[in-house]
Amino acid sequence: MGHHPYYMVDFMSKPIAIRRLTALSLLTLLSACGNQSATKDPEQLIPLARAEMQAFRFNEARKLLKKVENPFPETDPRHAELLYLRALSYWQSLPPVPADVEASVPLFMRAAELAPEANFAAACLLYVGRIYDLRDYQDDPPRWEEAREAYQKVVDNFPDSQEAAEARIRISMTHLKQIQDADKMAQGRDELVSWLDQHEEDAMAPVVATFLAGLYDFHYTEPKQALKYYQIADKLGFVNQTRAGNYLWRMHELALEEKQIENAAEYCRRIVEDFSRSGRGYEAWLVLKQLAKDHPRLELDVPEFQDFENRSSDSSDAGDAK
């Protein structure tokens, strides 16, 4: 075949088209009966499986790995890596097969045990926690005790890994998911507060701060605490810039509630200047103008409201067909 990415190109252009079509149908049937995509070359197994997974083709990776004997001896690091990838493909294939999901747990555990130095070892334990924690298939109840145990192993055995931060947060979330139990909720919240105090440099810190702000704002209705954590998230930098305008808008509302007029004005100014695409630009500009009027002593700076650059001054008079 050449470069053509299209279909039915090669086999219908000659006079024997019908025969070819029949042959194609038979071939399709035969290939469907014996679909074995496993490669014979053991060296290629790992890169192929990784490539399939990175393309979101977990089912194909599963087909590739399921029926293959692990060709590497246990002493070879690739043995553990293959176990890890096999477990991953079992767990992530769709639709989920309960037996496969359950079978992935011992594979992850074994891989972590065989290669504790490997860069996937922490992930193995984290994923065991996720399997217990999340609903992978219908009637898959949360097993939070087991999940916490697996997460804790990540924290204990790989304290400096990226996975440790996630595991720590996930442990707190297993408490926060028990919503009717106020003590559990408070335990989860306090754990996150404490983690954030000690890990402000972590990439996950602004995420946790934003989550705590929302928790205090909605569940606990404590505006002061909500504002405090929004301010921490803002200082660290909101990770999702597409939501930053909304967070700043809420911060201005909370700041007004807390009589922090200058802060409220500053949040509005930033929305007008940096996040007008959040849809709050005009409202923020109106608030800012009002604050400047109500508090002349503060000498608030009101920037000009920037309309879209390619807009006409009076669009309703455009559109003339005659």
């Binding site: 630009g281 879209f308 807009r311 455009a318 559109g319 003339d320």
Partner: peptide, 9 residues
Amino acid sequence: HMLPFLPYT
């Protein structure tokens, strides 16, 4: 004639 369809901010 498309100017009136530009987003209103």
